[in-house]
Amino acid sequence: MKQQRDSIPELVWNGNISVEIHQKENSLTYLANLPRHSYFAQILEDLKRLFAPKVALEECWLSSGKASIKWHWPVGVLYDLLSQEDPESATSVPVLWHLVFHVGSFPSSLVVPMGSMETFRTCFFNALKESDYVRNGSSSLVIALSKPETDTYWNSLLNHDFYDYRPIATKLFTSKSRIIPLKIYLGADAPIVQSSASLGYTLGQVLHKQLPRLFPSAVMYSLLKPVLHGIVLPSTVSTDIMNRDFCYPDGFLHIVLIPIST
């Protein structure tokens, strides 16, 4: 029974990252374990309440090193992208991710301000519709969700409830469609290649086809390797398994490429 319960999608869902957030010249510190599937949008209001209760949410933002944090990207994607950590390297140990909370001097060329949770909700469901469009040529599956289903899905994200999340995610992502939506992040300051792939291929074949110079072989990684949910995916993993077990809640497969350490 234990084996069955600890299914891969549930293990992936339960992946989390320890964060430590502080503000310059403020002795308070915010510590949390954030699920990789969650968003910084979900804690921004709490952070504002703690650090700067009087300012507007729109003026608040986070940074990690030199990078500003996009509240509408999944935490796991941001961590894999900004840390560029190699999950296979022997030196990698559990880390505490340090972030800084800012008010004002908003980096509007890099981040979109978050007005309220409603801004985030609209943004999240539009991303879900976008991935649905790639799969089905329309956003009909997301639009066809009933009001209770939509609310359950949204709340499963806010409450981190796998058993509420999974049935709806399965319904949305494993439909009759044979196409899966991909976002491939070439590096922290590099472009994102948004694309799609068909079921029935291996990841190596997909990367070789999309980016043949970065992936000269469909079998072996030579320059970069793909990281998803903090896992280096083997080139032999099939797009069917990736779609079934590794989608983020917005329906996309967000694949971060990191250099192979030599």
Partner: peptide, 9 residues
């Protein structure tokens, strides 16, 4: 169908 996020390329 969908409204892209303002920072999509």
């Amino acid at each position: 169908c969908f409204a892209p996020a303002p920072d999509e390329i």
